[in-house]
Design a protein around this nucleic acid. Structure first.
Length: 854
RNA sequence: GCCCCGGUAGCCCAAUUGGCAGAGGCAGACGACUUAAAAUCGUCCGAGUCAGGGUUCGAGUCCCUGCCGGGGCACCA
């Protein structure tokens, strides 16, 4: 005690709680024990796979990492306490441009920069106390990893899902590489460099993700409730399926037919002109067959249209432009001859690059028709009733009619009944749609069709630091897959290689590397100089973690059977489309190839919010913001983790100004002191036991799992605080530290705290007399007898207002409770001379007496 | 323009899913300890749930309208 008294003079808050010393003490113990290893085949525990999106090696961890990995670790540690064998691996998404740009700047190898950064992050993670299985680390830039990336590419190629085509592509003029559609922001800039993306016509490699569009869309339904609604909605929007019909229009004076996609085939009788995209082959062809004047005008218009940036083009308020092509199409429904125009409001790469214009019922077509004085014909009476049985259309109804779109400027897009439409007159919209499709199909001039916003995934990149595409270009122009036994195609040494972006892959300049024997006959051939989009790397990495050192296959099918899919995935919403869509696609491909037995890779998804400072994302560069290292130095990893977990619901943003790591450290010291106090009173008084504290402890044990499993970490922490406060009270002014209930509470607190503050909890566990590690102590089972209250307070309301409280048995009958309620003083006073009209009894909780003036 | 979230004490957040508005924290006040301060400990203070209407015995919770904030989509035929 003397030592203790001496320490009281110390300025430190809690004499024994020195988080730096505690962290230094336990980290080596855990390194030795490897409590989070998952490679024991004899382990019979049920399994969970908990994964955070693996980081890009950007050096020191930032607050966003701290938050996401805290959440993932809480979930992993929770399931371990529940007796599960938890796979919680870490790796690095280590190919990509920042390494390459840094290498160019400093004249070093991108690998040097990359692996130095990885080492730094590894140290950060260890310090942060994240419970990774360190034996499964992978880096996508290791040949041992990207070999299997190449294998995956070849599997897709074999299946016809990887192909080359020439097309207009997104070109990032800053990074000097092409980009996939998903990597271009809605404002037409690159999500990486921020540069305005331009269009270029190039031959590139694509993955045929569109072949999976329906499954990618429909399977989202399975994820309803387990994925954030926002992500589901973004993916649905991105895939953008619309259903309708393809209709073939014959071109007058030609064998050609123009097929258009429409969601409104019911309005086919209202088509008054047709519009083709200026940058489509079709437009060029139609113009070429027209007069010289039209040809000249078309050439001008095309140049003008292509000058418009994406931003200008998307401006819906921009007035319509276009020119007539002096060509004519024949409406297959009524044989009408309609003019063909070209206009840039029609997109070449959506549908068939041409639309049938129905100005009366489509706003864009109406705007165009009004601008150029084209005819407008109403074919749907949107004022006619559409519900109930089919009605005869009366004279009055026709006389009334819908408002004229030409004068109002408003297209009639609603439902209604068909008019001016020959055989489909009188039908409702949906009936007309099916009827017209039926007729078109019978006539062979149209068919039901679906179209998507989703485009195939462009995976070629003209940069160095990525996976080489395992294809050889034969002297005859044939594409020859690199034989499997020659994988990996390893990147060349950067020695003497200029990595500066110059519009084509730096690999093309590595002539020794580029020249290779054609696998067919040994004749000289060339490698493919491009590398793969790094999103290919991350589209399957969660499977590689299952057998990360396997040099015979990409991943073990039997291990995948045991562990996958991922039970809880954690990561930022910035990948709502990109990574998550690609990973879902590749998973479905692997399913079709028979490598996995599931079709969705991530059963549950948590998008953590951002950590903001002064309203802006906290970055290493922000002036006022603190850093990961500064916070861990100052308050310890535990306090930082606890702060982020306690700040609010995990999906909400955190304002750094609203939280206090100092307060978290204070709480941890307070919790720690309970363990110290209990340890200082080793003679447990088993006969006593504060029943109220035991009730609270077991209520906590009963409620905790649901809170953890619904990811309400903030509430779970609050409940631990509650239990700590109650225990403190019993120690100071109740039964004292030797009480059995206090010891029990201290142990439960320690185990619960281990999810959030592993270092502090380990030291507490040790003081309580246990061997490490508390991480495997196991969540205690709640004693059901302690969950039943002896008596509870029933509330008695009169007209919804609380008028009395009664202490009753939880097993009280409704009749008896009502009797007590009616007799209670508060009720009698409140009722006075009013008349009781109704009594609602919900035993044992509440009685509500409804009255009225008598 | 369309769609989706959210709005509860000065601040961050809870509320058994329709049953007493408060679990927890921050800030604040007071007290104990101290020569004093800090730290620590203890006690206390605090909204009737954005506004209006509806359903109900009973609404923070369900429905409608509006306001405010955040997000997604948008010339996609």
């Amino acid at each position: 005690m003397t030592e203790h008294d001496e320490r009281r003079d110390d300025t430190d808050a809690a004499p024994d709680y020195d988080i730096a010393a505690i962290a230094a003490k336990w980290q080596p113990v855990w390194d030795e024990m490897k409590p989070f290893a998952t490679d024991d085949p004899a382990d019979k525990r049920p399994r969970k796979y908990i994964l955070d999106m693996f980081p890009y090696p950007s050096g020191e961890l930032h607050m966003g990492h701290a938050e996401a990995f805290a959440f993932g670790d809480i979930v992993a540690r929770y399931w371990r306490q529940r007796g599960f064998n938890v796979l919680h691996p870490i790796g690095w998404d280590s190919f990509g441009l920042p390494a390459e740009n840094a290498a160019i700047e400093r004249g070093i190898n991108p690998a040097t920069w990359t692996y130095e950064n990885i080492d730094e992050q590894k140290l950060n993670f260890r310090r942060y106390g994240v419970s990774f299985d360190w034996s499964r680390v992978l880096h996508t830039s290791d040949p041992e990893y990207y070999k299997w990336n190449q294998w995956l590419f070849l599997k897709l190629y074999e299946k016809g899902l990887a192909y080359r085509k020439e097309s207009w592509v997104n070109w990032d003029p800053v990074d000097q590489t092409v980009l996939a559609n998903e990597q271009v922001l809605p404002d037409g800039t690159s999500e990486r460099s921020g540069a305005v993306v331009v269009k270029k016509q190039l031959t590139q490699w694509y993955f045929k993700i569109t072949e999976y569009a329906d499954r990618l869309l429909d399977d989202l339904n399975q994820l309803e409730g387990s994925w954030p609604a926002k992500v589901l909605s973004m993916q649905r929007n991105w895939i953008g399926r619309s259903t309708g019909a393809d209709v073939d229009f014959r071109v007058e004076g030609s064998d050609r037919t123009i097929t258009v996609f429409t969601t409104r085939p019911d309005t086919l009788y209202g088509v008054t002109f047709m519009v083709v995209a200026p940058d489509s082959e079709l437009a060029a062809e139609l113009a070429a067959g027209s007069t010289p004047e039209v040809q000249a005008a078309f050439a001008d218009y095309l140049v003008q249209a292509q000058k418009n940036t994406e931003i200008e083009r998307q401006d819906a308020t921009r007035s319509k432009t276009g020119i007539p092509l002096e060509r004519w199409a024949i409406n297959p429904a009524n044989g009408e001859r309609i003019p063909i125009w070209t206009a840039d409001y029609v997109l070449a790469d959506y549908g068939h690059g041409a639309v049938m214009a129905v100005p009366a019922h489509d706003q864009r077509d109406l705007d165009f028709a009004r601008a150029f004085g084209l005819p407008v014909r109403v074919v749907v009476d949107t004022t006619a009733p559409v519900t109930g049985a089919l009605q005869v259309i009366t004279e009055e109804m026709l006389a009334e009619g819908p408002p004229d779109p030409v004068s109002t400027g408003e297209a009639l897009t609603g439902d209604g009944r068909m008019i001016n439409s020959g055989p489909i007159n009188g039908l409702s919209k949906s009936n007309a749609i099916s009827k017209i499709i039926e007729q078109l199909e019978a006539a062979g001039t149209g068919r039901a069709a679906k179209t998507y916003r989703l485009r195939d995934w462009l995976i070629s990149r003209q940069r160095f630091w990525g996976t080489p595409i395992p294809i050889i270009h034969g002297a005859d122009g044939e594409l020859v897959p690199v034989p499997l036994d020659q994988l990996p195609v390893v990147l060349p040494d950067t020695e003497g290689l200029d990595l500066k972006p110059k519009g084509k892959s730096p690999l093309a300049a590595a002539s020794d590397w580029m020249t290779v024997a054609d696998p067919r006959d040994g004749s000289p051939a060339q490698r493919d100089a491009d590398t793969m989009d790094t999103f290919v790397d991350s589209s399957w990495y969660f499977l590689r973690f299952l057998s990360p050192n396997d040099d015979l296959e990409a991943f073990s099918v039997s291990e995948a059977e045991k562990w996958a899919p991922v039970d809880q995935y954690v990561g930022g919403v910035e990948h709502a489309i990109l990574h998550l869509l690609y990973a879902r696609f590749i998973t479905k491909v692997l399913f079709d190839l028979g490598y996995v037995s599931f079709t969705e890779p991530f059963s549950a998804l948590l998008n953590q919010g951002m950590v903001l400072s002064e309203g802006k994302k906290m970055s290493k560069r922000s002036r006022k913001g603190t850093t990961f290292t500064a916070e861990v130095d100052k308050h310890g990893a535990d306090a930082l983790r606890l702060t982020l977990a306690f700040a609010g619901p995990p999906e909400d943003n955190i304002n750094w100004e609203d939280v206090s790591p100092a307060a978290s450290a204070k709480f941890l010291a307070r919790a720690f002191r309970i363990a110290s106090d209990v340890a200082s009173a080793p003679e447990v008084e088993w006969k006593t036991g504060d029943v109220a504290l035991r009730r609270l402890t077991h209520r906590f044990l009963a409620d905790g799992p649901a809170l953890a499993e619904s990811l309400k970490f903030n509430v779970l922490v609050a409940r631990i605080m509650d239990l700590v406060n109650a225990t403190r009270k019993v120690i100071d002014s109740g039964a004292g530290p030797a009480d059995a209930a206090v010891r029990e509470a201290a142990e439960v607190i320690t185990i619960a705290l281990s999810l959030f503050a592993p270092y502090t909890a380990e030291e507490m566990w040790s003081r309580l007399g246990y061997q490490p590690t508390v991480a495997l102590a196991g969540w205690r089972k709640a004693d059901p007898t302690l969950l039943i209250e002896d008596s509870i307070v029933a509330v008695v309301q009169v007209d919804g207002k609380v008028r009395d409280r009664l202490e009753v048995s939880p097993k009280i009958s409704s009749d008896e409770l009502e009797k007590l309620a009616r007799a209670s003083a508060g009720v009698i006073r409140a009722i006075g001379d009013r008349e009781i009209v109704n009594v609602i009894v919900r035993a044992p909780r509440i009685v509500n007496i409804a009255t009225r003036a008598s």
